[in-house]
Design a binder for these strands. Sequence first.
RNA 1: CGGGAUGUAGCGCAGUCCGGUAGCGCACCUGGUUUGGGACCAGGGGGUCCCAGGUUCGAAUCCUGGUAUCCCGACCA
Length: 491
Amino acid sequence: MAKELISRSENYSQWYNDLVVKADLAENSAVRGCMVIKPYGYAIWEKMQAELDRMFKETGHVNAYFPLFIPKSFFSKEAAHVEGFAKECAVVTHYRLKNNPDGSGVMVDPDAKLEEELIVRPTSETIIWSTYKNWIQSYRDLPILCNQWANVVRWEMRTRLFLRTAEFLWQEGHTAHATQQEAMDEAMKMINVYATFAENFMAVPVIKGAKSENERFAGALETYTIEALMQDGKALQSGTSHFLGQNFARAFDVTFTNKDGKEELVWATSWGVSTRLMGALVMAHSDDNGLVLPPKLAPFQVVIVPIYKNEEQLDAISEKVNEIIAKLKARGISVKYDYNDNKKPGWKFAEYELKGVPVRLAMGPRDLENGTIEVARRDTLTKEVASVDNIDEYVEKLLNDIQSNIYKKAFDFRNEKTTKADSYDEFKEILNNKGGFVLAHWDGTTETEQKIKEETKATIRCIPFGQEEEEGTCIYSGKPSKGRVLFAVAY
RNA sequence: CGGGAUGUAGCGCAGUCCGGUAGCGCACCUGGUUUGGGACCAGGGGGUCCCAGGUUCGAAUCCUGGUAUCCCGACCA
């Protein structure tokens, strides 16, 4: 009725836009390019945050907070870095408003111009390294393993809810190390943390790998990435981790005295995931009926809907339901009991399907009589009647099942949509008709990469880790290549 | 930032060509009947017609300029 979705096959991007809004995850705001994340969507983000934060701390990191504003001069200190972000920075030039002389509201007070403009952070390397300079003197001060949860602003031309917005939420880890090896290990460690999170919690399989020089973070020597495949066959970069070498230490003059009393530049990494993960989550699992959420990230894992004709019936059902809720909670399962009398059961069924609640329990008079309850699972849209007695155990198993089932579904989909191409014609044919990931030989040059991008829109998503060596020739130039890289059209 | 489309009640739209004082569905409110897959009946409330200027006796409608959103390109997480 009111909330029907367009099908994925008919218009995938509209399906996505509508779903995000109709499932109450987010909506566009009065500010161009900026979204409002609604409570239901934010609850998912909080679940992501909680788990990531736990994982960061388990790997020795601590949280801190650095300023939103960055002095303009900081930005110009690392050449590649400026280059990368200059075109999308919001700049603060004044610090005061005043009433318009003609009484028509307020205006920027021209007398309140800042001595030095402030950049709204698009990322925090510069402000953080200018701070680290003061924190680091000796090898004894290292490593520094900080993370911050923050918002950042990148003035995007074209925005889409969660996938690309002018302001977004993320975490950014910034670490400082005494040795190159340690920093490289750190960057690798964190991409593995991201991959584990994506697969175990989001149920989204990812390919880990290194970015080509062309796709690297501005200022990094090496960028690692996790790449996920969406249902429309496009890739989504879902997290990145950068080995920054000594670039930022050099730019901000951050040195330490080593054990031999010699002064050295500090080695750096940074790594981040953002609210873009929400987009990945939506596009990886959801169907034409709405969201499909992995139990580990669902705001509530179970919804219980009572079916009744009068108040006495509702009371009787509620009594039973409350027992069930207590048992589920004892197992750490989150439950919502929707006894709202304003909506009919059918309406609620449709609504919770749209919102992707993994398991729905429905109890009516017949169930009460028979000691049963109806169990519906969102991922398969199947229903069965179960006994109330061990329902907690049953649901716990079911949630685990759903978590692994949606992962498997996404995994099989990705495998089916990953194709090897051995000629440029074959490559183009796959991109046009099948989509997905394409593994192909590449000569390692930026020129070839650019040409392929111009002609096919496909980019090198990554040079996958652990790829077996394989002699071959570049699909574009015919030059020799030692292994295949992962191509796809990307978000 | 270029090309196109669209802004009318909370949401989705009609009305715009051909100017005459704004309508439909959903949602909302009241009452009643209902409740195992988006209930039904009756009554009711709600509008700077995106903004500013212009033409006109009269503008949602015509003209000019803004602005926002969506789609397609260039740029990007």
